[in-house]
Amino acid sequence: MPKIAGQQFLDPSIIEKIKRMDVRARAVVDGFITGMHKSPYHGFAVEFATHREYVPGDEIKHIDWKVWSKTDRLYIKEYEEETNLKCTIILDCSKSMDYGQTGRDRRGPGKFDYAATIAASLAYLLQSQADQVGLVMFDTAIRKALPASSNPAHLKLILHELDQAKPDHKTDVGDVFHGLAEQIGKRGLVVLVSDLFVDTRTLQETMRHFRHRKHEMVVFHVMHDDEVTFPFQDNVLFKGLEIDMELLTEPRALRRTYLEAVDRFKSQVRRACSTSGIDYVPLSTTDSLDAALSSYLAFRQRAIRGARRR
């Protein structure tokens, strides 16, 4: 498969045209993997499981040279993976995530669409690596919680839930997260996909709670491109998605100050994450989807190295 053909599935504007979430996730992950020089598809346990044919990207050190000497064909030795990573993807389904989903001025994918695609792609990738993956969707309460599992059927369930999900209600991180931190018993990886339109102090506290429970955490801060660039020109009546407020204004007059406020908010979140030792990945709906996957893999590598050191 040519490199470019795979990479085009990392473009959010193209991927949004794929309706089914499972197909979408596979397309994203495959597109992402094709572009890598190193295959992520192998475990790091040592118990042999089976052989498979070499594909470009596989590390040469895993080639079974004995088989080559006998058959003159390249085979890779695969091992029974020892899964020690338990990942819970927490997806924000609040009303604020609904921005850009519909409407005549819609530009690119909606915020929730983008966030769900990231969640699905991560779940697919994790499952491909035989890691356990779970899904929690919340707004003011936990709307759906699928416990972590490495069962392939479980992935289907996750993808199905993501397909069905619709954003609604306000966001309330406080109670939901504290409960979650307690619920996810075994320490593992927590991936939060949200626009984080909550009180930063509450957010910081909840994140600390997760850390306190020894969870590793990655925050994918998803914002719509409109929220990041504020491109409006003519008079607009802004109506709050989560709060009952209206503002009729000339957007050009507010643009600069608004963007400053957004930057300030992102800095606060970044600082909060950094102080809690949490990976923070800001994403806009126009950003390529590989950013999320790359961040995850980088984090995983670090986790593996940390585990080996231990």
């Binding site: 915020k111 998605l241 709060i243």
Partner: peptide, 12 residues
């Protein structure tokens, strides 16, 4: 004017 349902009302 046109109406936009907006998430980031606080910043606005």
């Amino acid at each position: 004017y046109r109406t936009i349902y907006w998430a980031a009302m606080d910043f606005l």
